[in-house]
Design a protein around this nucleic acid. Sequence first.
DNA 1: TCAAAAGTGTTGTCCTTACACCCATGT
DNA 2: ACATGGGTGTAAGGACAACACTTTTGA
Lengths: 235, 235
Amino acid sequence: MELKRYNRQNRMLVAVDCIIFGFDGQEIKLLLIKRGFEPEKGRWSLMGGFVQPGESFEVSAQRVLKQLTGLENVYLEQLYAFGDPNRDPLERTASIAYFALIDISKYEKQLSDHFHPEWFSLKKVPSLIFDHKEMIQMAKEKLRYKSAFQPVLFELLPAKFTLPQLQNLYEGVYESHMDKRNFSRKVLSTGLLIKQKQKDKAGSKKGAFYYKLDKKKYKHLFNSFLKFGPEPGKI
Amino acid sequence: MELKRYNRQNRMLVAVDCIIFGFDGQEIKLLLIKRGFEPEKGRWSLMGGFVQPGESFEVSAQRVLKQLTGLENVYLEQLYAFGDPNRDPLERTASIAYFALIDISKYEKQLSDHFHPEWFSLKKVPSLIFDHKEMIQMAKEKLRYKSAFQPVLFELLPAKFTLPQLQNLYEGVYESHMDKRNFSRKVLSTGLLIKQKQKDKAGSKKGAFYYKLDKKKYKHLFNSFLKFGPEPGKI
DNA sequence: TCAAAAGTGTTGTCCTTACACCCATGT
DNA sequence: ACATGGGTGTAAGGACAACACTTTTGA
């Protein structure tokens, strides 16, 4: 006897939600939208969408991300599956949360959108629907944890960036100050950065040298990076 | 107008699967069952079950774990949500994988079970259904990653254990050898271990002193532990 | 000329690693 | 008595943290 379905079991909706991080050279930001349908229509929310038939979670998250930002091939990683039976008041819906790191300079508001997206400073996140605040909190923690050992934060930077920008980024993630001498020694010692001849004159009169990632080494060294941030585990 | 449901969306089955680790004093083991229903009836599998209405994923995993082991209050952590549309050939089923660390000495085969559970050495895992092999691989990696910074591995040990046992455990997780002098200095320096007066005479003629966890410090220090294993990130 | 940010070196401390011998005891 | 595994100390090297002054240039 061959079954056609699992009988007597309940099915539920499954959605993906994306925590989208960006970095403007000064601070870390989060891309949020105004929810366009009931319930909670009009409130701020993470970008999300229902998982479609035939679509894996990863593909689903990529689709949702592209819909909002127009971007493909961005850094995307599964964060956590949220499954509280009452997290969506209308109907039981599981959410697989993904976090994305995008180069904010490549982001372009999609013209014909109805999402009303806005970038928010991580310190000024508005009230959000459902458990989205919890998702963001968890994403922040994971980002800290992860970037202590892997050079993921470069995904947030444009092709050319300066050391002060990079330091701002790390300081933002760890909400702490770092010594610039120790910082530059540390990152340069990885050999991942290639110094450019041009300077960025935007941030100061003297100007700061641009650096580029050594992409070959980057892929190769992704798993053997440095230790940053506060004591490991204290994060 | 208020909606009652999200229309035009597809619902799917959601299950939990548990990767259950144990440690017998010598090596790390995995608890597997013989699947009791179609499809793939009779093949080895992780213990799992469908998420029930009103039940969160965490509670669901706890229930499944108790069903198999009789244990409650064990270390349980969400690993990853597996959602490939074809992972279960019968019907689309998402699986939220959890990994559990149990004290193997507390485990007792449930009498009236129909699961036929068996402990397998991590090095001799049989062929498994669906994507369960991938789940185990990911769980191993997460365990490595995690136990480098947090004292999670104590969850696998009985109340009293010896330093050589503890070292076996770490060596099993990292599949490497460690220097016993450096190892004992390192773990003792945490202050988490309380030396007992009795010895375990099972493993040697001289006998090895038992240690107990300082539970207060354990809970407090859970997030500021040591660095173990190979280079961070090389895991 | 001054203000503002970029860039650069040294030192002390601590952590990590490598390494070898004696101890206790059951057989 | 001996074989087996348990227990301990030291020295060298490397990583990290603390710290202050000079440079450049736009206003």
